[in-house]
Amino acid sequence: MLAAGLAAAAVWVLAYRSLAGVARWVTYRLAGLEPASHLASAVEFFLYEAPKVLMLLVAVVFGVGIIRSFFTPERTRRVLAGRRESAGNVLAALLGTVTPFCSCSAVPLFIGFVTTGVPLGVTFSFLISAPMVNEVAVVLLFGLLGWKVAALYMGTGLVIAIASGWTIGRLGLERFVEPWVFEVRAAAHDDADASASWADRLRAGREAVADIVGKVWPWVLGGIAVGAGIHGYVPEQFLAGIMGKGAWWSVPLAVAMGIPMYSNAAGIVPVVQALLGKGAALGTVLAFMMAVIALSLPEMIILRKVLRPPLIAAFVGVVGSGILIVGYLFNAIL
């Protein structure tokens, strides 16, 4: 099994390193497109970026799938229960990045956390970090924009999750949780997957690839196709006036536009990359991306089942302010 794994890794690396050459060959030799034309530029971009990002996704999602088999929601709750704020917020944000989570589980997870002694603010740190700082977002940013932007996104995403959760905890908003939530006598049970073998964990990795990559690949291809179009056809610096550093109102506008939009990281990052290439400022674009992913209308509708409107408004206000600060900060220092 080890030998097969090493062989697969070697094939992966060889294929990955030859992608740029193959994309050029197909664009200019096989298809015979005229160099430096709009079409050739867009086609080469797509042929190089699409397989590159998909290959990175497969490798990372497989690895993260294995890591996640060590972190079940039950175990995370045990770690966080009774934890004090501050340290609890930091821990919750970090655990949010590795604990398996999907937005359809947000409500049972919320109830399970707050009824077993996880403070409200700590629960929010988890709920903010889990969708925003995830492997798909980080892989796409790394693959399309480099490790610096990926690290910046991950770092600021964690800070927003920690600070927003802490703030919500300080505001004392427990009374805006639907009262029935606290009446639930939540049963604690042992997590079924806690004692998995390595064969189980490898299977979890493969299932994660089938599940996540199987779900996001159309978004990735669609996003990169839109990105390729922008890359090939929109003139350089076209967006500098609208989304550049000089336009102070661009950051709040990007956040306001991002909230009603619903996309996952896979669809939004290629567009982000294309916008950056045309003169948009990094802070503005990161703020847009964070607003799209972290503050989505469907998730708020789901959370309305357990949260009263003032608490949802506080959540949007606090997280939105955090994203605004990040946007302005990066536009100012970069």
């Binding site: 409500v107 049972p108 997870l109 639930v184």
Partner: peptide, 13 residues
Amino acid sequence: DYQAMAAAGVLAT
């Protein structure tokens, strides 16, 4: 029903 789910101890669906 979310209430029943929480009472059973379900954290992830």
